[in-house]
Amino acid sequence: KELVLALYDYQEKSPREVTMKKGDILTLLNSTNKDWWKVEVADRQGFVPAAYVKKL
């Protein structure tokens, strides 16, 4: 499975999103959308801005 690194803190703004902290390592589930990537963090799945994460 592919992992991404959170480059910035992100606070979810809708139930479809997830909160992450800078430095978090997240499991990447889907990166087909260039703006929003689906990730899993702490047993929750949701979207984060693609610009806020980097593939490892």
Rank of each mutant, 00 (worst) to 15 (best):
V53P: 01
L56H: 07
K54T: 14
F47C: 10
S31W: 10
L28H: 01
E2D: 13
M20R: 00
D24M: 14
D24Q: 14
W37L: 05
G23R: 02
A42L: 14
N33T: 07
R44A: 06
I25M: 06
L5P: 00
T32Y: 10
P49M: 03
K34C: 10
V39F: 02
K55L: 14
E12I: 06
V48C: 03
Q11L: 13
V39S: 00
L28V: 06
S31C: 11
A6L: 02
E17W: 03
K55F: 09
Y8C: 13
A42H: 14
I25P: 01
L7N: 03
E40S: 11
Y10K: 00
G23Q: 03
S31K: 07
K54I: 15
V39N: 00
L29T: 05
I25R: 06
K55S: 08
K21F: 12
L26E: 00
T27I: 15
T27M: 13
L29K: 05
K13I: 07
M20Q: 02
S31G: 13
N33F: 08
K54L: 14
V48M: 02
D9S: 09
L56N: 04
P15V: 10
G46Q: 01
A42K: 13
R44M: 06
Q45I: 15
D24H: 05
A42Y: 14
Q11F: 15
K22R: 11
A51D: 09
L56M: 10
P15E: 13
A42G: 15
P15W: 10
N30A: 09
S14N: 14
Y52T: 07
T19R: 06
N33H: 13
K22D: 02
K34G: 09
I25A: 03
K34R: 13
L56I: 14
R16H: 13
E12R: 13
Y10I: 01
V4L: 11
D43L: 09
A6E: 01
E12Q: 14
V48S: 00
L26P: 01
M20I: 14
D9C: 05
L7R: 05
T19N: 08
G23E: 02
K55I: 14
K21V: 10
S14M: 07
V18D: 00
V48D: 01
N30V: 08
V41G: 14
V41S: 15
L5E: 13
L5K: 08
L56P: 03
K22A: 14
K34E: 11
L28C: 08
N30Y: 07
Q11K: 14
K38S: 08
R16T: 12
T19K: 04
P15S: 12
Y52I: 07
G46M: 05
S14W: 07
L56S: 04
R16A: 13
S14A: 09
L26D: 00
A6N: 01
A51E: 10
K1E: 09
T32K: 12
K55E: 07
K21S: 10
S31H: 08
R16Q: 14
N30F: 07
Q45Y: 08
K21P: 01
L26I: 08
V4Y: 07
Q11I: 15
K38N: 07
Y10C: 02
P15T: 10
S31T: 10
F47N: 04
K38W: 15
D43A: 10
V39Q: 00
P49R: 04
V48Y: 00
T32N: 12
D43E: 13
E2V: 13
S14G: 13
V4Q: 00
D35V: 14
K55Y: 09
K13Y: 05
E12A: 15
K34W: 08
A42R: 14
N33W: 07
R16W: 15
Y8S: 08
Y10G: 00
A6C: 12
K22M: 09
D9K: 03
S14Y: 07
M20P: 00
K38R: 11
L5M: 14
W36S: 02
K22T: 07
E40M: 11
E12V: 07
S14V: 05
T27R: 12
V53C: 14
P15K: 11
F47Q: 04
L29H: 06
N33Q: 10
A42P: 12
T27D: 07
E40R: 09
A50N: 03
L29M: 08
E17H: 07
W36D: 01
T27V: 15
Q45W: 08
G23F: 05
T19W: 05
G23I: 01
D24T: 08
E12S: 14
L7H: 04
W37S: 02
R44D: 03
K21Q: 11
P49F: 03
A51R: 15
E12K: 13
V18R: 01
S31P: 06
A50H: 04
L29A: 03
K55Q: 09
E2L: 11
E12L: 08
L28K: 01
T19F: 04
K13G: 08
V39I: 08
S14F: 06
M20N: 00
K54M: 15
D43T: 10
V18T: 07
R44L: 06
D43P: 11
V4E: 00
K54G: 08
K1R: 14
K54E: 14
L28G: 01
K13D: 07
L29W: 06
A50R: 13
V39A: 01
T32I: 09
F47G: 02
S14L: 09
D43G: 15
D35L: 14
V18P: 01
Y10V: 01
E2G: 10
L26M: 13
T32L: 11
T19Y: 04
P15M: 10
R44K: 11
T19V: 03
G46C: 03
P15I: 10
D24L: 05
L3R: 10
W37P: 01
T27N: 10
A51T: 13
P15H: 10
K55P: 12
L7C: 08
R16N: 14
E40K: 10
K13P: 05
W37H: 03
K38Y: 15
Y52F: 14
W37F: 07
L3E: 07
A51S: 14
K54W: 10
D24N: 07
P15Q: 10
P49L: 04
P15Y: 10
L56C: 10
A50W: 02
K55V: 12
G23A: 03
K22N: 04
V53I: 08
N30D: 15
K34Y: 09
K13L: 10
L56V: 13
A6V: 11
L28E: 00
E2Y: 11
E17C: 07
V39T: 01
E40G: 10
Y8T: 08
M20T: 03
V53H: 01
V41K: 15
L29G: 01
W37N: 02
R44W: 04
L7V: 07
M20D: 02
Y8F: 13
V48W: 01
D24K: 03
N33S: 11
K38M: 15
V18K: 01
N33M: 09
E17G: 11
D9A: 07
N30S: 13
A42S: 12
F47M: 09
L26Y: 12
L5Y: 11
D35F: 15
K13H: 09
F47A: 03
D35N: 14
P15D: 11
F47Y: 15
Y52N: 05
K34T: 11
N30M: 09
E17Q: 10
Q45S: 12
E17T: 09
D43H: 12
D35A: 11
K38C: 13
Y8G: 06
T19Q: 05
E17Y: 06
A51F: 09
A51M: 12
Q45N: 11
E40Q: 15
T27H: 10
A50L: 02
M20F: 11
V4W: 07
E2R: 11
T32A: 14
L3F: 15
A6P: 00
W36V: 03
W37K: 01
W37D: 01
E40T: 08
V53E: 02
K21D: 04
G46N: 01
G46S: 02
D24I: 04
K13E: 08
T32V: 10
V41E: 04
S14P: 03
Y10R: 03
L7E: 04
E2M: 10
L29C: 07
Y8L: 10
R44G: 07
E17R: 05
